[in-house]
Every structure is written in structure tokens, then in C-alpha cells.
Amino acid sequence: MTLELVVDGLTVLFLLTGCFFFLAGTVGLLRFPDVYCRLHALTKADSLGLGFVVAGVALQLRSWHEVLLLGILWFLVLSAAATICYLVASEALAQGVDPVGSGASQGQSGTEEAP
């Protein structure tokens, strides 16, 4: 009985922490100034939040198969996030999206061409 209570408590804790990181990710997505910063919000905060949710959910499962499935799922999302972040960022750079702080945020964009 008490063990169940502890497990349930841990689940609540993990899920709430996960929710916090998801909230942080969304706030970052909305408030950060450019694509590169927003990629951080999406790939870091959300991946971590998903990790906590996975941990919380895994505690409630009864079979090891499902826990293994969850582990694979999280691994997949983590690697996808890392790859996607790199691909999108390098493409954005190649397309000429100026990062904030490289001159674009100081009033003018494209400092290379400025005399």
C-alpha cells in the first residue's frame, strides 16, 4: 500500500516537472527572438519534458515490454530532436536568416554589406 502511494507520488512529481518543461518550451517558442533560439526551446525543453513524462508514465506500467517501448520512444524523440535542430538551423543559416546579435538586432541586418 505504501509502496503504491510512493510510486503514485513520484508519478505526480515527474508529470508536474514534465509539464513545467513543456510550458517552458512553449513560452520559449513564443517569446524567443529568432529561429535559432526557438530551436533551443523546442528541442531541449520539450525533450526534457517528454523525458519526465516518460518516467512518470513508466512508473505506472506493469510490464517491462511497455517500459522498453517507452525507452525506445524517448530515444527516438531525442535523436530526432538533435537531428532536426541541426538540419533546420543549418538550413536557416544557409538561407540567410540572420541570428539575433549578428547585426540584425542592432537596427540593421547584414553587417557584411554595411560600409
Binding site: L15, G18, F22, G25, T26, L29, V35, R38, L39, L42, D46, S47, G49, L50, V53, V54, V57, L70, L73, V77, A81, I84, V88, E91, A92, V97
Partner: peptide, 22 residues
């Protein structure tokens, strides 16, 4: 930018996974 839109759509994927698990 288009990248902003696509990473926001990506958010639907990641968060959707969490929602489905819960």
C-alpha cells in the same frame, strides 16, 4: 519564417506524444 512554422508544427508532434502517453 518558414522554419518557425515548421518547428511549431514539430511542437505538435512532441507534445502529442506526451499527451498520448499520459
Amino acid at each position: 519564417t518558414q522554419a518557425d512554422r515548421v518547428i511549431a508544427a514539430q511542437l505538435f508532434g512532441t507534445t502529442g506524444v506526451a499527451i498520448l502517453l499520459v
